[in-house]
Amino acid sequence: MIALFKKRRFNDYLNDTFDFFKKDGKHFFGAYFTINGVFLLLLTVFIYFISKVYFEVIFSEINNNGNSSYNYAETFLSENFALIIFGGFFFVLLTLLFTLINFAFPVIYLSEYEKNNGANFSSKEIFKRLKAKAGRLFLFFILSLFIIAPILMIIFAILILLCFIIIGIPLLMIAIPLLFSLMSLTLYHYLNNEDGFFSSIGKAFGYIFNQFWPIVGSTMIMYMIIQVTLTILSMIPYVIAMVIIFTSANTSGSSDTEALSSLGITMTILFVFTTILNYVFNNLLMINQGMMYYSRREHIENKSSFYEIDSIGNHFE
């Protein structure tokens, strides 16, 4: 197993994250898709149909030179108003629920991983812990939404304004990973302890500012790795699809309507694909934050020394 309680430096955060997925990634994602599979499937279906309708409206305007796009949109809205309202409400609810579970899953997984000395547990145990922590998870979301989110919006608004005098650009590059780590480490502490929300934020501040640059730098690099990978994975099929669509249109003499229809379907599928990948790749960031959480706990609790003593005792037995 990967030792969670370990004093880490900058490169250790990255190396241990990738080592974890090399060793236990199959078990992790097996449990991830078992628990999140239904939510992911429903979300995929909703995103597909929403994207499909959106691109139909957009390409209808292009195809008809803007003459009937508004009529198409108004007709669709009037005929499906109730369905759109109900579907939109359900989609937002589903997205929020899945996002919460998606962020909480790595936290619970690492907690079970540490408790069982490795990947010696099933997805049922993770599901039980998720149910047990559902109340605290919901409270975390509410407090974050109504207290932390407005503060973060003000901070980002100031930083964006500062970008006009250059200084805001480096500050923004530091603020994004810093605030992500702050909220992630708060969630780790909040779900793994009985401390309150604001006490957990205080603990997260302590974790970060005792090792500021390794934590912020590791988070920034992990985020960049994920974004570059996502860009490559989404651009390759996009370019191939564009070449096939326009080549076939030119050789077969297909109409502009058919070409735009094919383009719309391609864009819809790619949007669904990249959305799913974003959720899946988010696990790399959260496991990376988990390495930071357990590393900072090791500095405080020094648990690895106790594990070594226990292992010596087991060898003598």
Rank of each mutant, 00 (worst) to 15 (best):
Y207G: 03
I108M: 11
H299M: 13
F209S: 06
S111D: 13
K133S: 09
Y293S: 00
A204D: 03
I58G: 03
S111F: 07
L161I: 15
I232E: 04
I245L: 01
I221A: 02
F281G: 00
V272I: 08
T257G: 13
K128A: 04
N288R: 01
A259S: 13
E79Y: 04
E125P: 10
I201G: 00
G25V: 08
H315W: 11
Y307S: 09
F49V: 11
N11K: 15
S304F: 07
P214S: 06
I244Q: 04
L260E: 02
F316N: 13
F18R: 11
E112T: 03
S68P: 07
A157W: 09
L182V: 04
L145I: 07
A241I: 03
A149N: 13
I309P: 05
E79K: 12
N36V: 06
P214M: 06
M286I: 13
M173S: 06
K124T: 13
L159A: 02
S248T: 12
G217M: 06
F55T: 10
I169Y: 02
I208R: 03
A259P: 08
N288L: 05
L130S: 00
L14H: 02
L162S: 05
L179R: 05
N67G: 03
R296K: 14
L94T: 09
L178M: 12
A175N: 09
Q211S: 15
R136A: 06
A157P: 08
L145Y: 07
E74C: 05
L77H: 01
D19Y: 04
L93I: 07
A132Y: 07
Q289T: 10
L110M: 13
N36C: 11
N71Y: 08
F39Q: 10
L130V: 05
I85V: 15
Y54C: 02
L172T: 10
Q289G: 12
L14N: 04
R129G: 03
L260I: 07
F39L: 15
D195L: 08
S255Y: 00
G217C: 06
S311E: 15
A104C: 12
V280L: 06
S311K: 15
I309S: 05
I276E: 05
S51Q: 15
F146P: 11
I287G: 03
L159T: 05
E56L: 09
F103A: 01
Y32L: 03
I155A: 02
R136Q: 14
I148Q: 01
V92F: 11
S123G: 08
T268M: 02
I221M: 10
H315A: 12
M153P: 04
S295W: 01
V239S: 01
F146V: 15
I245P: 14
I276R: 04
I126C: 05
D16S: 06
K23N: 08
T99A: 08
E298N: 07
L40S: 14
I176V: 15
S262M: 11
Y188V: 03
H189D: 12
I221K: 05
N192K: 13
Y188K: 07
L171V: 07
F209H: 10
L41I: 15
I244A: 09
I165Q: 07
H27E: 11
D310L: 14
M286V: 11
V216A: 00
A3H: 10
G25S: 12
N302Q: 15
K203T: 11
A204N: 09
M1P: 13
D310T: 12
A157Q: 12
L285Y: 00
F90E: 00
F246C: 01
